[in-house]
């Protein structure tokens, strides 16, 4: 039953991506991407990853849709007809896909417990957590304690991205006492 629900949801995801690739109205593309993200969150629940599903539901179909819509408001919503033939990219995509599908025949089957992924370090965490950290949610334990340094790196990446976006987009016009908003120092360099 688990595997069946999983397959149905994955098929729906693939269908929404086909529609997403073909569409030219960017507004529709962004909304379809939101639908796709929500399907992804459902698949992640079926795959026993409620933590990840919660994040994907909030990020994929919530915040990232808002950001895409904001960017569309600032640009335009219709995609131009491409001038190059799509044959070469299609060829590259099909060749890469065929090579990867050929590779899957050596991969272990879905849902097996005795695969290399599930027998080494990942499988030890549920056993070690009660004695060493003593919290029920193993994902939190691994995230914050066993792999705390890793998470520090991720937090720093998020921090850096925030600084990057602020440097690119912020105007200091909302400060009191700063009347000359158009001649701000960050615009002068970009437009000549």
């Amino acid at each position: 039953m688990e595997a069946f629900i999983n397959m149905v949801l994955l098929t729906m995801m693939a269908a929404s991506v086909v529609a997403l690739v073909r569409m030219r109205n960017l507004f529709a593309v962004v909304i379809l991407f939101s639908v796709y993200s929500f399907l992804m969150a459902s698949v992640l629940v079926v795959l026993d990853a409620p933590d990840v599903a919660m994040t994907e539901a909030a990020v994929g179909s919530g915040v990232s849709t808002v950001l895409f819509l904001a960017a569309l408001y600032l640009t335009k919503t219709e995609e131009a007809q491409p001038r190059h033939s799509p044959l070469l990219p299609m060829f590259v995509a099909v060749v890469v896909g065929a090579a990867l599908v050929y590779g899957t025949y050596d991969m272990p089957p879905f849902g097996a417990a005795d695969t290399p992924v599930n027998t080494h370090v990942g499988a030890q965490y549920p056993g070690r957590t009660p004695a060493e950290i003593d919290i029920p949610n193993v994902v939190s334990a691994v995230l914050a304690s066993y792999r705390g340094f890793d998470t520090l790196g991720e937090v720093l990446v998020v921090f850096t991205a925030a600084i990057g976006v602020l440097l690119l987009l912020r105007r200091n016009k909302r400060r009191p006492g700063d009347a000359s908003e158009e001649a701000g120092p960050d615009r002068a360099g970009m437009e000549d």
Binding site: P50, D51, I135, P136, N137, S140, A141
Partner: peptide, 8 residues
């Protein structure tokens, strides 16, 4: 978040 799914 330490008991149910969740976290920072």
């Amino acid at each position: 978040g330490e008991i149910s799914p969740g976290g920072g």
